[in-house]
Design a binder for these strands. Structure first.
Lengths: 155, 155
DNA sequence: CAGTATCCCATATGATACTG
DNA sequence: CAGTATCATATGGGATACTG
């Protein structure tokens, strides 16, 4: 398959980048994955301006990745907490991929700031390519093939 | 671990986003991973303007992710081909993560345009979290723990 | 044709000031 | 305090015109 003839207007990489390909969204997702849910916590921890945070949350809501759920503390007005939807939580793989690349190639010489572990075994885990039977595949034997919605480039 | 106290200025997610977190770079990496290597091929296939393509290639070169190697066709002046370095090729995991999310949640109802297969077995493959022994872990039992370069947030 | 320099514009961001 | 409206600015992108 010559990739130059693939109609990439239909490619999931580009579609996903349209959704989350700005400087803040994935950092925001990282926070939400780690249960930072309140506007002011997000604002302070990300060091993001309030208007931008507000807009990003709305955009993610519109895309169905985040929902606002009200909570109430004694004596104060109800406020909102923001949490990832099931779909939004699946962005985890993107955040982890960024983290894995950064840890390997841009990291602090001392090592990673954060490591990923399996809650059950406490072993460190990583992203890898796996076959349907669950076996791990070497990254260089990956091939891209035409899928159901494949389109040749017109002309 | 309360993530609100983590000093995220040292986080690999953010560091990687600084490097490739714009709307073009990862699409460019997708092309390079698929052996589209020439300036004009990249320009046409991505539908990107020449100045931007030029700037992105330079930036990626500076970051050590891409190198320009000269080639010569009979009768014409030598030109450049752009290819990913070993480090650059490791961005594959990021591109695949975007693709996997998009295929699952933003895709054409007909299915994915492109599928990933293992060259040896021709089986479809996917990104998953695996333990050191190569066994696959369920995504919801993932935990983030302090790593060697962990820093608490001042104050 | 391969690539770059220049200029212009769209968009994203932050500061500030505001509302409930 | 939780958020939003408004505005100024920075950054990234494209059009055009240029060089070798």
């Amino acid at each position: 398959m010559d990739w130059r003839n693939v109609d990439t207007s239909n490619c999931s990489v580009g579609r996903t980048l349209d959704l989350i390909g700005d400087r803040w969204t994935l950092l925001l997702v990282r926070e939400l994955l780690n249960d930072v849910r309140r506007f002011s916590d997000l604002r302070v921890h990300l060091d993001i301006s309030a208007p931008v945070l507000s807009r990003r949350l709305k955009a993610l809501g519109l895309a169905g990745l985040v929902v606002a759920v009200p909570y109430k503390e004694d004596g104060s007005r109800p406020r909102m907490e923001y949490e990832l939807t099931e779909t939004g939580r699946e962005l985890q793989v993107v955040v982890l991929a960024l983290m894995q690349f950064g840890d390997q190639h841009l990291a602090d010489p001392k090592g990673p700031a954060v490591v990923l572990v399996d809650a059950a075994s406490q072993q460190r885990v990583r992203l890898a390519l796996v076959r349907p039977d669950g076996s791990v595949m070497p990254p260089d034997s990956l091939r891209w093939r035409k899928g159901a919605a494949f389109r040749e480039l017109p002309h």
